[in-house]
Design a protein around this nucleic acid. Structure first.
Length: 314
DNA sequence: GGGCCCGCAGGG
DNA sequence: CCCTGCGGGCCC
């Protein structure tokens, strides 16, 4: 169902809806029912409908629904968390459901299509809060961060449910809700491998280049690691899928790198910006023969996260 | 399944 | 700029 690749263009809202990317014909927030029968958002449209929206491509500060009279994009009264769209986005933030982002031609010029609409992939809602907006009324806010390219093939909320129904597991298992929850709990650990990632992981014998952990996943001594891109793939300024841009990392270090909590210095040390008192703040990157990390990707990663290297390189 | 309400349309 | 209209949710 969600086999539509990011970058796909649509003429109008009707076409977006027909492709099942977003259910509404006009509203910005689309939702469905999750495994616990709660409303959970699955998609948003970003089309300059709200004056407080901020779009920086990889990071979006979205405004919730409501607070304005039709056909105006300025706020005339307070928004509410009771609003179904706002509540559903909050629910997706809580449950970790990514949302599809569709950009319309009225949005931020640098990142929006010239006409019509474009599906731009999955974003994770990382926080929600409310504040007073530009016009002086309370608005609901959501910060969303684009999932890295190797996680863009995650199934959508509906597809998780649909797959279970299609397989007939509901009748057999008896507890559809539990199965949906179980899938959701594991789904964002699925990471697609490329040949480059496999080669780098094999060279490192699946040992994390940051924390040196070797995650044992079977009795025969096999271990698990992920190929992590330093400069993320895709997007307007995406990095390449080459050895020099890939690290062999454990899942914990991978997510920290993807979120900018870890960064690399020019002399290939790793800095944990939010390390606790008991954890090392700066460690050398583990190296092996035959795998050379290129510092230009470390620079691109720091630039992307607006990180000033406190240890000198920039 | 009908009536009603609503909105980041769409077209003048 | 204003006005019409459509589909989804949701209540009967």
């Amino acid at each position: 169902m969600n086999d539509v690749p990011p970058g796909t263009a649509f003429e109008n809202r009707r076409a977006v809806k027909d492709a099942k990317l977003h259910k509404e014909s006009e509203a910005g927030i689309s939702w469905g029912r999750d495994g616990e029968d709660e409303r959970a958002a699955d998609a948003i449209v970003l089309n300059n409908g709200y004056e407080d929206d901020v779009d920086e491509w990889h990071e979006i500060t979205y405004t919730g629904a409501g607070g304005q009279t039709r056909n105006s994009n300025s706020q005339t009264f307070d928004q509410s968390w009771e609003n179904k769209g706002n509540a559903s986005l909050r629910r997706s933030r809580l449950m970790g459901n990514p949302v599809r982002v569709i950009r319309g031609s009225q949005g931020e010029a640098a990142y929006s299509p010239a006409s019509g609409y474009r599906y731009d992939g999955l974003y994770e809602i990382v926080s929600d809060w409310d504040e007073v907006g530009r016009s002086g009324f309370r608005i609901c806010r959501f910060k969303m961060i684009r999932l890295p390219e190797d996680r863009q093939d995650l199934t959508s909320l509906e597809q998780q449910v649909k797959e279970i129904l299609d397989r007939g597991e509901v009748g057999a298992g008896g507890d559809a809700d539990a199965q949906v929850r179980r899938r959701r709990a594991t789904i964002d650990r699925i990471v697609r491998d490329t040949a480059v990632a496999r080669r780098v992981k094999t060279l490192h014998r699946f040992i994390c280049q940051v924390c040196s952990i070797s995650l044992q996943i079977s009795a025969d001594g096999r271990s698990y690691a992920e190929g992590a891109h330093i400069q993320a793939l895709g997007g307007p300024e995406g990095g390449p899928d080459v050895d020099g841009n890939v690290l062999c990392l454990c899942p914990n270090c991978h997510i920290k790198l993807d979120r900018g909590a870890l960064y690399l210095t020019d002399d290939l040390h790793v800095v944990d910006r939010f390390a606790g008192a008991d954890a090392p703040r700066r460690v050398p990157l583990r190296t092996v023969e035959g795998h050379q990390v290129q510092k230009r990707f470390a620079r691109a990663h720091r630039r992307f996260w607006k990180i000033m290297d406190e240890y000198g390189s920039n």
